[in-house]
Nucleic acid binder design. Structure first.
Lengths: 231, 231
DNA sequence: GTCTTGCGTCAATCCTGTTGACATAAGGCG
DNA sequence: CGCCTTATGTCAACAGGATTGACGCAAGAC
């Protein structure tokens, strides 16, 4: 396999168009491509063109498309968590972690869609997991519980954030139509067939909003209730 | 555009291999292909081969790949909720709803991963919302709370199920690598830099599993704690 | 029986990821 | 300073992807 990759030191040579390649440059260009033209615009060929190098040069930096995707995902995590330090209040700290992850995803909505369910195995992700599990351990949970509950927490945060990001990535008309959809559709329903919806029909407008914060708060309430120190 | 689609009546002609094409046959064959050979086996060319027609014939029935996948997803939703009736226990009923949705998604991961971020506005969805909000109303929640909490509940379920499905839809090597990732990566970390991970290192194997049921249970615990009847 | 036209087929186009061969210059070493 | 190894950018090619325009057959209406 000629696709060997991440050495520590490199023998860098400018490309035909004068650019000095680097993993950072590639990831940043990929994020820009996705942000401007959507996830489907990310292909090895287009990325090479955007950077100013031959597409195959990218294989000197990444084993393949999947490797590149993981690098992108890890970069998003790193940006989101930059400068975060957990405080004394573990609930508040987890809450801020959640909000930061969501903000990071919303900053790159189209990339978030395919990055959210991957395990990047890279530094930024490892640090985030260390922080999160550390917070749950400080709350008094046993290792086995802290691990499982962190997984549950972060999966909820990631999947919810990804859903918000995917919605954000929709074209404006479709997004607005979906936002109004609940209000529009349910107003004219048969009260006999749909008694519950009829009862809450005044409140259905809120169905278009994000439930992210409420979901995180509910989850943290349940975690706090289960925490050993809370008896 | 020669790609016109779903007329009511059709002039059906057997293909070269004698098959009579139909939307149902195409959707069912696609689901079979995915089930037998994994999600990556679904391509227009292979689908045509499996059915016994030219790949381009499929464009007489679907505008494109997206259209086909949405048709598949529509079928999945109907199947998942078929025969469900809520019981007296609102928590248990919501729990079963959650499990059904997830099962439906996991049965056809690629289609689910593709469609979960979209609002169908169809009858099955409306009935599900009616059922869910009805359960929360029966728990004693006020309309405004029942609505918001149902949204939070179903968003958690849908996004989590979508995440599981997306993971399931990964090509096998990547899926297995991701599943082992936590165990593999974190075993050799520096204990000083990663104290929390070091503490829980025996438990990290569980990080590869789904947290769906735990997330649903935690959410339902929080809902039950907030329920007016529970004072 | 004829005519229209729906629809299956074919071939072509343009994409995609990936790789083996090749050339060239970077940088270690004398 | 200059050589030599080899990392790395480039090129060409391959297999397979979605999609579509032209073509021709036959289904169904009349």
């Amino acid at each position: 396999m000629p696709t060997r990759v991440p050495q520590e030191r490199r023998r860098r040579r400018p490309t035909r168009s004068g650019v000095l390649l680097s993993e950072d440059l590639i990831v940043e260009t990929a994020l820009r491509l996705i942000g401007e033209h959507g996830p489907e615009a990310l292909s090895v060929r287009r990325l090479g063109t955007a950077i100013g190098c031959d597409p195959s040069a990218l294989y000197r930096y990444f084993h393949g498309t999947d490797d590149l995707v993981l690098a992108i995902a890890d970069r998003i995590i790193g940006d989101a968590m930059a400068g975060f330090a957990p405080g004394d209040d573990w609930v508040a700290s987890l809450r801020e972690m959640a909000l930061r992850v969501r903000a990071g995803y919303l900053a790159h909505p189209r990339a978030a869609a395919f990055a959210s369910y991957r395990v990047t195995r890279r530094e930024n992700e490892i640090r985030a997991v260390e922080t999160g599990i550390g917070l749950l351990l400080s709350a008094g949970f046993a290792p086995v519980d802290a691990t499982r509950l962190y997984l549950t927490f972060i999966d909820t945060v990631l999947s919810h954030a990804a859903m918000d990001a995917a919605f954000q990535a929709l074209p404006r008309p479709q997004r607005e139509a979906d936002h109004r959809a609940w209000h529009d559709v349910y107003q004219g329903l048969d009260p006999v067939a749909y008694p519950a919806l009829t009862t809450v029909r005044q409140e259905l407008h809120s169905m278009g909003d994000s439930s992210f914060e409420e979901a995180v708060d509910l989850l943290l309430e349940a975690l706090a209730a289960r925490a050993p120190g809370m008896l």
